[in-house]
Write a protein that binds this DNA or RNA. Structure first.
Lengths: 280, 280
DNA sequence: TATAAACTCTATTGTAGCTATAGGGTCAAG
DNA sequence: CTTGACCCTATAGCTACAATAGAGTTTATA
């Protein structure tokens, strides 16, 4: 009769005895014979075919519940539907992974920047290509408000981003803007915060372009939020004056890297401030 | 003090109260204050930063355990390692999804072929491009042995495939070969079974090329395994003789689609037999 | 025939990251 | 003082098994 005990069946199909137990429990595959006295299960070799199919459909990403349904209904059009929805699901997962990868690489890049420049703390001149930002105006001056205000405004930015289907993966680099006229008159006022987005991100009212050009930059570690930003901003502006540059656009304060620092439970961040300049 | 109750904190961060409970339970984020009498939790707005980080790192595909470790160790090089292994993990997942997709499309194609031809059951002439197969010689004639023998040989093919790191996704189309000399002398003997593999599959001793050309084909539904194959093979060969063709290569019996048919617990398969011909 | 080795049984617990409940206590406004 | 909204703890559920405990069964050998 070619009946196999559960252990043989398991070994033959490279699965565990528990798996076979489990499949029986959920009604996916019952052994051909069960000895009523000992309770021993005996499988027929042909039942390998079912196990093959189960394994195969699992490889296609189907759940055991789905597989069971297909077995029970035994309907080709149901199979077709499942196949189609499976392709959609795979597409979604691929998209997610794609974004994950972009996010991880972004994070990796941030980390590198953090490690390279965290020692120097000197003003430097950098040339940036055109960049895109997704902006939100919180209507309140974040330099006046406490760190709490800032957190609330970030929540609002996030809400906006969610509304516009902006993937949350962009949220490792949040920044704030001081408009050109304000920074030129040394008026430290910022109500707008932003995140950098990819070049491919579709244009929308919230999406603004930061022009390419030469930027005077300074990197430092943020203490208690942005509390020490203004000190560094003064150093930056002194540098601009001293070297005879003239400010040609908005000032940006950007969180280059936000690292998991648990002890303070505040943001452990590495900040870069920058302002575009031309030779006066 | 800007303390938030758990519900407010949850709403602010678009997560559920249970999630906050859970994070506390696993030691990922403890509320700033817990009222010892009522047990009420109170969170500080700044703790949003931690939630942001958790959410962000989850998006990168990290587990809460990993995240917790990063928080606890607070070590940049550990973060770097995690990032690197994360990229590997993502790569693996992408590869898996890629194979899943190929598998699903293959299945979809099989299904289409099944539905298109299952009505006709007539001999037809088809032209195929060059195809590659991964072969295994079971040393026993599958036409002599019972269906059990066949199942055992399939297990061996699978073992071989596993050894050679052939993805199991190929196993929806298993087939068997009758060598040219045998089929020409009407000697129905086959000890070799195979699966079709992609063109890109690396060459190996087991991998053989099925030449491009014109094939006389016949499709039918397999009953009780391959029991009825020989009847159809005779029809096929009669057709070859009658139309003055001459056999120019090996005869293939291929499972075009294997569908979940539960009631018999045998393979519910749709079979195509084919033999390459030239005008004599 | 006795015994030991290998196998099998049922039942329970654990995994990850939560969700959803039940049954009770707490807070703030009217 | 009541009402409604909130919060608490504790439990079970989800997937697809793995791991274990403690007891019984089968098979081979002595």
């Amino acid at each position: 009769m070619n009946l196999l005990r559960i252990g043989e069946m398991a070994k033959l199909n490279k699965i565990s005895v528990q798996t076979l137990h489990y499949y029986e429990k959920i009604g996916l595959l019952k052994p051909q014979v069960v000895d009523t006295e000992s309770g021993y299960r005996y499988y027929h070799v042909r039942q390998c075919a079912t196990l093959d199919l189960i394994g195969y459909m699992k490889l296609l990403g189907m759940s055991l519940t789905q597989i069971k349904q297909l077995f029970e209904k035994n309907d080709v059009s149901l199979i077709r539907e499942n196949i189609a929805s499976q392709l959609n699901w795979i597409e979604e997962q691929k998209e997610k992974l794609q974004q994950m990868e972009r996010g991880v690489r972004r994070f990796q890049f941030s980390l590198k920047e953090f490690e390279e420049t965290s020692q120097s703390r000197e003003v430097e001149l950098l040339t940036f290509p055109e960049r895109k930002i997704f902006c939100y105006d919180g209507k309140q001056d974040i330099y006046q408000g406490s760190i709490e205000t800032y957190e609330y405004i970030i929540r609002e930015l996030k809400d906006q981003a969610r509304l516009k289907h902006l993937p949350m993966i962009y949220f490792c680099n949040v920044g704030s803007v001081i408009r050109q006229d304000n920074i030129q008159s040394r008026n430290f006022f910022s109500s707008e915060i932003f995140v950098f987005v990819d070049d491919e991100f579709p244009n929308a009212p919230e999406v603004k372009v930061v022009p390419a050009g030469t930027y005077v930059c300074l990197s430092f570690r943020g203490e208690d939020g942005f509390a020490n930003e203004l000190d560094y901003a003064k150093i930056l502006l002194d540098y601009v004056d001293k070297h005879g540059y003239s400010i040609s656009g908005d000032y940006l304060c950007e969180v280059v890297a936000e690292l998991p620092v648990y002890d303070t439970e505040a943001r452990g961040m590495f900040i870069r401030i920058q302002v575009p300049v031309i030779n006066a």
